[in-house]
């Protein structure tokens, strides 16, 4: 089999994202000696964990044919609200309030996009700015809960269970759970249907608006969970947290093979996409690439992923 046929075969089986990740890891492992050290690998896992949770939510929206730019701001909002409430009312209420904030942002996006029919790009661009504004309003621009966060919460952000960070367990458990939802419930199948053909789904009796709105609620909820995780890791609510997370998440989902026009995508592959983004950053760091050049490289990867998406669908 020629090289080209092999590549085509791997592509058909949907193994391109995994292969990209493996090649990237192999290259970095050969080029540097620190990549495979336990400390570095743990770092990669922890760094990926929060982005993976966001990317899972983003996958719901993108499979449903939409787009969500507001996740970065939602991460900051959830983290700050969790920290604020936790200091006053304790651990559990803090976590619940943080996630609830995410649900609300998702609900707002969903209602405006699905029921009012406003373009998702504009809507979530609006909520991105709006939510960030709210974060600065409630925190007065300063970090929240520097001191006084419950010690168990701080521990959640740094300690391990069975040798693996708590933060890494969260996306692992969510991935299993949500994959089941996506593939084994009518709700999950409906998201694929609506993303693949909105009119055909509508004319098959599927409540299209509700399904689309639900994808944004999923996305907001998961961004809320990610926000709480980040607050635990940073041991505070940071009003500037989560900037550019939306772009990284979208890039990861597309690198994972989801179609930007909806109807196609797989949750675990989006997580692989997250690893590609994180390992790329890690690799550039280890290779001592200038941080300005790193930005250029990451931007180029995002464009390349989108271009690959186009080429894939042209055939």
């Amino acid at each position: 089999m020629s090289w080209k046929q092999t590549a085509a075969q791997l592509h058909v089986r949907g193994l391109t994202p995994l292969l990209t990740l493996l090649v990237l890891c192999a290259f970095t492992a050969l080029a540097t000696d620190r990549f495979l050290s336990p400390l570095n690998l743990t770092n990669i896992l922890v760094q990926s964990s929060i982005m993976a949770v966001i990317a899972l939510g983003m996958t719901f929206v993108i499979i449903g044919g939409g787009f969500d730019l507001s996740v970065g701001s939602t991460v900051a909002l959830s983290g700050c609200i969790a920290a604020l409430v936790m200091v006053k009312a304790g651990l559990v209420l803090g976590i619940v309030a943080g996630i609830a904030a995410g649900v609300l942002v998702g609900l707002l996006n969903g209602v405006v996009i699905a029921l009012l029919g406003v373009n998702p790009f504009i809507t979530t661009l609006g909520t991105m700015v709006l939510v960030r504004g709210v974060v600065f309003l409630i925190t007065a621009g300063a970090p929240v809960g520097d001191e006084g966060l419950p010690s168990s919460f701080v521990a959640f952000g740094s300690e391990r269970f069975l040798g693996i960070h708590y933060l890494v367990w969260v996306p692992a458990v969510l991935l299993v759970l949500l994959s089941w939802v996506m593939h084994n419930t009518p709700h999950g199948r409906r998201i694929y249907a609506v993303g693949g053909g909105r009119d055909a789904s509508y004319l098959s009796g599927i409540p299209v608006q509700r399904v689309i709105a639900s994808t944004y609620v999923w996305c907001g909820t998961l961004a809320g969970i990610a926000g709480v995780m980040l607050a635990a890791r940073l041991q505070s609510g940071q009003p500037t947290a989560g900037e550019f997370y939306e772009l990284t998440a979208i890039a990861a989902v597309v690198l994972g093979g989801a179609a930007l026009h909806g109807g196609e995508g797989t949750l675990y592959k989006s997580v692989i996409g997250v690893f590609i983004m994180v390992v790329l950053g890690n690799s550039l760091n280890l290779l001592n690439v200038d941080s300005y050049w790193q930005r250029v490289a990451v931007g180029a990867v995002i464009i390349a992923a989108a271009a690959a998406d186009r080429l894939r669908w042209r055939r």
Partner: peptide, 23 residues
């Protein structure tokens, strides 16, 4: 085109209106 989701499988299209029946 209004009755079908073109880039999904025959199977998914046949089941499109009866997802809840098999839940």
């Amino acid at each position: 085109g209004l009755g079908l989701i073109m880039n999904q499988s025959v199977r998914d299209n046949i089941l499109l209106a009866s997802l809840d029946r098999f839940a």
